[in-house]
């Protein structure tokens, strides 16, 4: 049987112990079984989504080379959109994150080699793009930049949905992404305090499907700047 005096001593030791640990500055990290919400902006590079040459059947015996009527090259311009994510920490270093983005990238068509139209003609179209993805997020434990910044790696996959202007046509596809970033804690990051901070992230995204005019898988970089708060 433990006497009341011994209990009081034990509690006091525990409090002291915890205070010493915080004073030493443990690595900022996730709080296991807690949620972290992030929101901010993402940007993606321009993305070529196909080029096509309209050809005519040439007059000639055998198989003469086709006659080029025109060439059209399609590309999404660089774009910026909204980026929202919710992560659930499994451990102090590992979290599962569900995210979504929204953007309105401009689709530009450059027409060339039209002998009758002369110079390059440009045709533009606006699209609306949504993505939903799931990622694993792992904080690299052995890399430490000061007491507030820690790097992480991220990887996962998602669903892509793009609509042309007028919403007449919907194209869907899938994405796979891999990248990394850094998290900066303004406050918190320890087990007992609510975290607030910012994160910067770069990802390479491999896209299949969506609005495209060829059969290739497209790979392009994307960047995010997010604020986060632990809940």
């Amino acid at each position: 049987m433990i006497s009341p005096v011994r209990v009081r001593i034990a509690l006091l030791l525990s409090v002291v112990s915890a205070g010493v640990a915080e004073a030493q500055g443990p690595d900022p990290a996730f709080r296991p079984k807690h949620v972290v919400a992030s929101a901010g902006l993402f940007g993606s590079s321009g993305l070529a989504v196909g080029d096509v040459t309209a050809e005519l059947r040439r007059n000639g015996i055998g198989a003469p080379a086709p006659f080029t009527l025109l060439r059209a090259e399609s590309e999404f311009d660089r774009t910026i959109g909204a980026d929202v994510r919710v992560a659930v920490a499994l451990t102090r270093l590992l979290a599962v994150e569900v995210g979504g983005t929204y953007a309105k990238p401009n689709l530009a068509i450059a027409v060339s080699q039209d002998v009758e139209a002369g110079a390059v003609s440009s045709i533009a179209g606006t699209t609306t793009q949504y993505t939903v993805d799931v990622s694993g997020l792992y904080q690299v434990p052995r890399v430490k930049w000061g007491s507030r910044i820690r790097p992480y790696v991220i990887g996962g996959g998602g669903y892509l949905r793009q609509l042309y202007e007028g919403r007449l046509r919907v194209e869907t596809g899938h994405t796979i992404h891999l990248g990394g970033g850094i998290r900066y804690w303004i406050s918190g990051g320890q087990r007992t305090r609510r975290a607030v901070g910012a994160r910067v992230e770069a990802r390479m995204i491999r896209r299949s499907g969506g609005i495209e005019f060829d059969e290739r898988r497209h790979i392009y970089p994307a960047f995010s700047l997010l604020g986060f708060v632990g809940l």
Partner: peptide, 9 residues
């Protein structure tokens, strides 16, 4: 009309 996927006219 020129199809942007296959170039048909």
């Amino acid at each position: 009309a020129i199809n942007l996927r296959d170039g048909t006219t």
